[in-house]
Simulated scan of single mutants.
Amino acid sequence: MARPASRGRRPIWLHPTAKPVLFALSLLPFAWLFHGALTGQLGANPAEHLIRATGDWTLRFLCLTLAVTPVRTITAQPALARFRRMLGLFTYFYVCLHLLGYAWFDMGLDMADIAKDIAKRPFILVGFSAFVLLTPLAATSFNRAIRALGAARWQALHRLVYAVAGLAVLHFFWMRAAKHNFAEVALYAAILGTLLGWRLWQQWRAPVLQRRAQGPVRPGREAA
């Protein structure tokens, strides 16, 4: 007697709990930092620790967000795209915490001093520019915004992520330059450079593949 065909297991990222689990995991760094601040476990300079840690997590979530498209394309798992929006919004969440930490702990929320500091220190200006460019991407990450802008304009706007990634690495580089510590900078630059390079390669490759699929134009079939 033949056995009934076994049903293939559904990938874990299609499980209904996948998004809530990812949301909870993405909040863990914030929970850990919040707990550390309350219990005094952030070292001798907790303010600096909070600012540096939120900046590090911003870069990590930016890398994860940009990795979604290559991973789903290479693995032929289009359903992974459902996590990209959440990861992008968590990137913005942590950059907001990073900026808030700088404005509060370093500048005492004095807007005049903050404006002067941004204009005076290039690495602060670069970091703030990345935040400004990231803001419209977060604000238009919802379906209603996509419909309002149209797919082409929405995609053009979200190409700002290339500039955001470059500015973020430059900000990190200048921050670490004072201590001559470039190991982490090189790591993030390599990861982001690879991810963005893959995207540019795909954009160049798409029309080439389209022309190949259409085949050679036959004589007499050219447009008049």
Rank of each mutant, 00 (worst) to 15 (best):
T17G: 08
D56R: 14
R121A: 02
W154F: 10
A31M: 10
G215H: 06
S6Y: 00
A103T: 11
K116Y: 07
R199L: 02
G88R: 01
P78V: 05
L167H: 02
T54W: 04
T65A: 14
T17P: 00
K116R: 15
R199T: 05
A119Q: 11
R7C: 01
F93G: 04
A152I: 06
W32Q: 11
F61A: 00
I146C: 00
W201T: 08
G150Q: 03
A2W: 09
V95S: 07
A165K: 01
R121V: 07
T54A: 06
P11H: 07
S6Q: 15
L33Y: 10
F128D: 02
H15K: 01
A112W: 04
F34S: 15
A177C: 00
L209R: 15
A79H: 11
M107F: 11
A183K: 11
L59K: 07
V126K: 00
A206V: 04
R10Q: 14
L192H: 03
L27S: 03
A145K: 04
G150Y: 04
T91E: 02
K120E: 12
T39G: 00
G101Y: 03
L192G: 02
Q210L: 12
I12R: 10
L192S: 03
G150T: 06
L100S: 13
G108V: 06
R7L: 12
H35Q: 12
G36I: 03
A168G: 07
F142Q: 07
P29N: 11
R9N: 07
A79I: 00
L62T: 06
W204E: 05
D56H: 12
F142W: 11
L196T: 10
F131C: 07
L28N: 04
G36Y: 08
N45F: 08
A177E: 14
T135V: 01
P78S: 08
Q210Y: 05
A223R: 12
Q214L: 13
Q210F: 02
T135E: 02
A2E: 13
P207Q: 10
P216T: 01
E222F: 08
A31L: 15
D117V: 00
T54S: 15
R159L: 12
A168V: 11
W204Q: 13
V164N: 06
L97V: 04
R60L: 09
L99T: 13
L192Y: 03
R211W: 10
A76G: 03
D117A: 13
F30M: 09
P11Y: 05
F123M: 11
A156T: 14
K19F: 08
M111V: 14
Y94C: 02
A5K: 14
L38W: 08
P219N: 03
G108Y: 05
I74M: 12
W32F: 10
F105W: 10
D106A: 13
L62D: 02
H180D: 15
V21A: 15
T75M: 12
V164K: 09
G40P: 08
L89A: 04
Q203D: 12
T39P: 00
L125S: 12
S141H: 04
A67D: 09
Y162W: 12
W57Y: 14
G127K: 01
H35G: 13
A112D: 09
R218E: 14
H98P: 06
G166S: 02
R3L: 15
T91K: 03
S6D: 11
W154C: 07
R212T: 00
L134A: 15
Q155A: 15
A183Q: 11
R85W: 03
A156E: 09
Y92L: 13
A165Q: 06
F128T: 14
F83S: 10
K116G: 10
R159D: 04
A156Y: 09
A177P: 00
Y188D: 07
